Computed example of a mutant assay.
Amino acid sequence: MEDKKCLAFSIIQYLHDQLQNGGLSSDAQESLEVAIQCLETAFEVSIEDQSLAVSETLPELFAAATKRESSEVNPAGSSVSEEDIAEAERLKTEGNEQMKVENFESAISYYTRALELNPKNAVYFCNRAAAYSKLGNYAGAVRDCEEAIGIDPSYSKAYGRMGLALASLNKHAEAVGFYKRALELDPDNDSYKSNLKIAEQKMEVPSPMSAPGGFDLAGLLNNPGFMSMASNLMNNPQVQQLMSGMISGPHNPMAGAGAGAGAAATGNPNPTDLAGLIQAGQQFAQQMQQQNPELIEQLRSQIRSRTPSASNDEQHQ
């Protein structure tokens, strides 16, 4: 009860100050006098009772509370300093520069460091989601878009990028919902309109490029992460040797007579029959699995028939 009386006293004290120094009209002053009398009666306090006064005035308490509420707070509960906010922005800008030169892994690193300093910034999550998508990590993109939307439910770009990630995972029905929400927030965005139309079509028509077992050749060839991995593999001397052995097999009319002996000398299987060809293919798949098992696992779960357009989504804030 004592705290309530102190609060009431602070309010009455503030109203008294407004009566004397507020420059109010006579009608307003009369209204304040009535309000003061009502408060004194309701809480049984008097402006004369200075024992109820606190060290700070009501305006000072209000200013301090407003400043605390406007501060960005991290999960640990501590305020994000102005220095951290500035450094996070610098890191975000560096990440955007890395995106422009297609150094996506480096961009992710910069965005992650920015989030460590300011974890309640929806833009940082959304930009990192774009970088994840460029590397074929659509699950990571979905998670970051969810975080961005949780922080800012009116952030249209987060919904658009969520749609792109879900469409890339062949979850077209879910992608449609996010594209529609993105268009509600940004109705003039042609990219969202185009991608919504594509997703709606994919809900109705199965992909002609998908094999019976669910393997999507078109999606595989459009996956930048896979193509990067394949390029690295083809520069691997062991893989080059393996492919050379496959090409020099009996199914190749230009194969040399010494191909079999060369393969035997190097220890690689000699694909002189179907079994040997299968064995060579298995070794190639094992090389791929060893180099990037996470991407291989993602490719197994993805059936992509057409990559949605991101032409209007390349700008990073």
Rank of each mutant, 00 (worst) to 15 (best):
Q315S: 10
T41Y: 12
N222W: 14
V142E: 08
Q317G: 10
K180F: 01
V34C: 07
Q283I: 10
K100G: 02
E2H: 14
T57L: 08
F215L: 03
K202Y: 00
D27K: 04
N223I: 08
H172C: 12
P293H: 10
A264S: 15
S311V: 04
S301I: 02
S31L: 06
H16E: 12
S133F: 08
T41N: 13
P250F: 13
L52W: 09
F104Y: 15
A263C: 14
P208T: 04
T93R: 15
T266Q: 08
R161I: 02
D313L: 12
I47N: 05
K197M: 01
A255G: 12
E314F: 11
P224E: 02
D17T: 13
D3G: 08
I11G: 06
L91M: 09
S228L: 01
Y110P: 05
S78Y: 13
P119S: 06
S191D: 05
L295S: 08
R161H: 07
A63C: 07
L19W: 06
F215H: 12
Q13K: 11
E94V: 06
F284Y: 09
E200G: 11
T272M: 07
A275D: 03
E297I: 01
N236P: 12
A285Q: 09
M229A: 03
A35L: 12
L183R: 13
M254W: 14
H251M: 11
Q13G: 02
V80K: 11
E56D: 02
L117M: 09
A88I: 12
L19V: 02
R181S: 02
G177F: 03
T272P: 01
I278N: 09
P293C: 06
A218D: 01
Q98G: 00
R90G: 03
S31R: 10
D190Y: 07
A275Y: 05
L217Q: 09
L32Q: 02
E48M: 08
E30Y: 11
N21I: 00
D84A: 15
E174N: 14
A64K: 15
Q201W: 09
V80D: 00
E60V: 04
G214F: 15
G23Q: 07
S55Q: 11
P269H: 11
E294Q: 14
L91Q: 05
V34R: 13
V34W: 12
G258N: 13
P153C: 10
L183Y: 07
G219P: 10
F43S: 07
L39Q: 06
N121S: 09
N74M: 00
E116D: 15
D216P: 07
E69P: 03
L274N: 11
M227A: 03
N195Y: 09
N312F: 11
Q302S: 03
A199L: 08
E82V: 15
N270G: 00
S244L: 09
S78G: 10
E97N: 15
A275C: 01
P206S: 04
S207D: 12
H16Q: 13
G219W: 07
L196H: 09
S46I: 00
D273K: 10
Y132K: 10
